[in-house]
Design a protein around this nucleic acid. Structure first.
Lengths: 114, 114
DNA sequence: TTGCGTTATATTTTATTTTATATAACGCAA
DNA sequence: TTGCGTTATATAAAATAAAATATAACGCAA
């Protein structure tokens, strides 16, 4: 590789203790659950297994003080999943942090010559 | 988990194209190579395999315009690895970015109530 | 009451990643 | 010239992670 063009990138996430509980991927998952009303559909959209998605939802619900998603099985459509009001707030807050990080990355990319 | 304490954390890294070429771990590796003069010793200190460390060094040397580490086998001590002047500059620049990120995280943690 | 599609969970299989092992090349020092 | 400890590389084994499969529970609608 000769004469490469460097790009600064980064991520932020939320921890409790030393365990990662919320990041880029999980927030996207929450958003898709919110939009589709279904863990399965959200998983399909993100090309992940249902188990993987369910584990994420379960992990979040267990590590936040209150559930971000409530789910029901059976009924019309076979079941559903709903992002709670708290969950919506968490999504919004994270989006804001993400946006601020993008600004940070932009600012510090101006003189990015290694 | 009831009443969790949330902590904002994050990382920055350098990409060329869409490939990650330098991050937290690799900079630490470079620092330890610089201090010890040995890829093997640096790997041992970081509890990673020699192969893993060598692959990282090789990947960096291939993706930056010029080598960050030059290595020699044989001779006194069996061989050695030296971080180039360019490599030292890269380490320094990254440390600065890392430090700025820490400030960013601190600033945005003040009102971190989810 | 039967079927539907989803949630929820366990188990098995497959794929991927990591680690371990082996071996050659190397150049200095004894 | 022999031994040493490292770089460099390939291969095999082990450990993890991911994906696939199977199955029960559920409640509405037909």
């Amino acid at each position: 590789m000769s004469d490469p063009i460097f790009k600064l990138n980064g991520r932020v996430w939320i921890e409790t203790g030393d365990e990662k509980v919320l990041g880029h991927g999980r927030v996207e998952l929450l958003g898709r659950i919110q939009a589709s009303g279904s863990i399965r559909q959200a998983a399909l959209q993100m090309k992940m297994s249902y188990k993987q998605a369910w584990d994420m939802v379960n992990h979040m619900n267990e590590h936040f003080g209150q559930p971000l998603v409530v789910s029901h099985r059976g009924g019309k459509g076979g079941g559903k999943a709903v992002v709670t009001e708290y969950g919506v707030r968490v999504i919004t807050r994270f989006h804001l942090l993400h946006q601020k990080l993008q600004e940070f990355l932009k600012e510090n990319s101006t003189d990015l010559i290694l």
